[in-house]
């Protein structure tokens, strides 16, 4: 493992950030207040759990794959330990974080920048954007769907208890709507999940039923403006009971799935 100022060995890390060592690849899942660590560049987002400090990620931009948590809210952290230390915390990578909806004023810690604590490189820094002129480069749109059409599934993912559709999911929904139009869908069957999460402590937390209701409202708003073929039958099935948590892939179980059945020829 290469040594940099931002990354040190796991052994050293264990001494620095907590009182017990954890193994690379180990699953970790917990709820805690996020902690912001200022640096000379962008801030790092950390969280403490059971005496250990974890590194969640850095401030980025709205087009990023990962969104930072928020002070004034607890964060649900789910992922796997990479074995590295970043910005003074054990890195969790891959990682999924969810801003929990309840306002919690106790989550309000900003640590000052300290010598030796360096944030990873940020494509979009805290100051002017010196590396990407203008807005983020647009990805070329995928080619329009072509026959023969088959039953196809599209999945929109959400964070725990949330109904906000983030930028990277826009393309999924756009492709689903386009596929339904081009294939003259006879049916769109929509399943709205209610997820859950098994924490490292063994506790299981379930999404509030209202998250399902809010996701349903979102997809209905889109169906109202999608200009789908008039013959398309739409069914929406919101889940009442939460999907079981397995403590390994729970972050994948918060979704809206659209199954599109093309017109029969």
């Amino acid at each position: 493992m290469p040594m940099t100022m931002a990354r040190t060995s796991l052994l050293v890390t264990a001494m620095l950030v907590g009182h017990f060592a954890v193994a690379e690849g180990e699953r970790i899942s917990f709820v805690a207040c996020p902690v912001v660590r200022d640096t000379a560049t962008v801030p790092c987002f950390l969280a403490d759990n059971a005496g250990t400090t974890y590194y969640l990620g850095i401030q980025q931009d709205i087009g990023a794959d990962w969104f930072p948590p928020q002070l004034n809210h607890k964060v649900l952290v789910e992922g796997y330990l990479s074995g590295d230390t970043v910005c003074g915390g054990l890195e969790i990578k891959p990682i999924a974080t969810s801003v929990l909806p309840t306002v919690d004023p106790a989550c309000n810690t900003i640590l000052p920048a300290e010598p030796g604590i360096v944030a990873p490189h940020a494509e979009r820094g805290a100051g002017p954007n010196g590396e990407v002129p203008g807005s983020a480069p647009r990805r070329a749109p995928p080619p329009p769907p072509e026959p023969p059409f088959a039953v196809k599934e599209f999945s929109l993912s959400f964070t725990f208890d949330d109904d906000g559709l983030i930028a990277r999911e826009f393309g999924v929904l756009a492709r689903a709507i386009e596929y339904a139009k081009v294939s003259k869908a006879s049916a769109i069957d929509i399943v709205i999940s209610r997820g859950s999460a098994k924490l490292s402590s063994g506790e299981v937390i379930n999404e509030d039923p209202s998250a399902v209701m809010r996701r349903e409202r979102l997809i209905r708003r889109w169906l109202a403006v999608a200009e789908l073929p008039t013959a398309t039958r739409v069914s929406i099935k919101p889940m009442g009971e939460p999907l079981p948590a397995d403590g390994r892939t729970d972050e994948n179980n918060r979704y809206i799935k659209l199954t599109i059945t093309p017109e029969k020829r």
Binding site: F45, Q70, G127
Partner: peptide, 23 residues
């Protein structure tokens, strides 16, 4: 260029940019 902490601002911090945001 002058950076500061943008904090607790709905539809800025709450849209995935993080709270606070140093910009």
């Amino acid at each position: 260029l002058r950076q500061f902490w943008l904090k607790d601002t709905t539809h800025i911090n709450s849209i995935g940019l993080g709270n606070p945001l140093k910009r």
